[in-house]
Design a protein around this nucleic acid. Structure first.
Lengths: 225, 225
DNA sequence: GCTGAATTTAACGTATACGAAATAAAATGC
DNA sequence: GCATTTTATTTCGTATACGTTAAATTCAGC
């Protein structure tokens, strides 16, 4: 049996996927400009699907289309980080609360528990890359359990915008030793169907994360990322 | 002197503006499908800018592009309303808190105060249309004072999605007599630079609004709007 | 040598064209 | 008369072409 998962993506979809990847990986660096025609050639398609993709990524906040200056990959300033972390704080805490209200059984919480374990292991072996990946999974899964599809979309959008910043600061941050305490507390609150605690604890977690990041940005004089 | 405000909008921008207007006004009804070519003809332009506009409105959640079924104007279900009100609750409360932290002088709060007065007058004369308009202004101004541009964008997006629903329920709702007490309390908390109260009070206000709306939708069996 | 006007160039915005894919319609076989 | 295959039609996805306009360059005048 051949896997029928070979979906036929349109060029526009491919362009969105590829451009997003190139932006998040830093291959298209923050602050740089790129002509539609260059991007089109690089992706092996005409300008039309590239423009459509750029329009979509523009409304996701990853880039900006400026007539005759090309497509600009948007940098993220400390002020932007501040805005984004404030939003993530509110919406993820809401998700934690809703997840606790939903009363999930342990089986539904397995991915959450697993990501916490993976973070423990990663810290043990000081593997920051896998820690970051597991942390992402935890947050994404938490939001998913919150059950608000719009919150999911918004959080994903915001996360995309800070991905480069996270990568840049990962190795100058203190080891997030205490961080998993929060994760566990949130997880337990959801298991115990305690919305108040889930909300409050996750909120605290995010506020702390924001403070840590902003301190780093200040200390290392990162003005654009 | 002729007003030089006659900006030259691109066709794509015009299409976004016009289509949004037609959707919010109900001229393009929720749940209906429209071919790109029809819309293009109606707007007096080719398919290219219409497609670009549709792409943008799709990422704003107003419509959905479905190959060969045309552009579908997205209806808003009670579940959607629930999601949206939850988000508005969190983000507007955050804005109220930040506005109070910012420590604005009375002069900066004039529009807020004015919109409250206009709501009073509107209720006095039972003019629901102007009440709704002033209420919108209050909320938009509050969010603006919050100073988080991303919150502004998101709230605007969510508001667009419920505009039709609000119009549909405006005349079957009880007169929002108590509502202005909340507005005043939030306003005073911002003046008094009391973030806690501003946040809590606005949150309460929004939670109540959500309950009212959902009750109406239930009572009148609105399943799509 | 510098400032401003004229010219050239380049990039975008958008119309148009066309092939591919999906749906609808028609025709064929049972 | 119904199911199935074939054909026709429609609509979209995307390449291409072109006029417009902003930016860059050249040139003229002081």
């Amino acid at each position: 049996m051949k896997p029928k998962n070979e979906k036929v993506l349109s060029n526009t979809q491919r362009a969105v996927h590829d451009l997003r990847g190139m932006i998040l990986s830093g291959q298209l660096a923050a602050g740089t400009d790129h002509l539609e025609s260059e991007l089109a050639e690089h992706l092996g398609m005409s300008r039309t699907p590239v423009r459509e993709a750029a329009l979509m990524l523009e409304s996701k906040g990853l880039l900006e289309m400026r007539p005759r200056k090309g497509v600009r990959i948007l940098p993220v300033s400390p002020d932007d980080m501040c805005e984004i972390y404030d939003i993530l704080t509110e919406l993820e805490s809401l998700a934690a609360q809703k997840a606790a209200e939903a009363g999930y059984g342990d089986d539904k919480l397995v991915p959450l528990a697993q990501s916490i374990d993976r973070m423990d292991n990663a810290i043990e072996s000081e593997d920051l890359e896998s820690w970051a990946e597991a942390d992402d999974t935890f947050h994404r899964e938490l939001v998913r359990l919150g059950g608000n599809t719009r919150v999911e979309k918004i959080v994903e959008m915001m996360s995309d915008q800070v991905t480069r910043a996270r990568a840049a600061t990962l190795y100058v941050r203190p080891l997030p030793l205490k961080s998993n305490e929060d994760h566990r507390a949130v997880y337990q609150a959801i298991r115990n169907r305690d919305p108040e605690t889930a909300h409050a604890r996750h909120r605290r977690h995010r506020l702390h994360a924001k403070a840590v990041i902003l301190e780093i940005l200040e200390k290392y004089r990162f003005s654009k990322l």
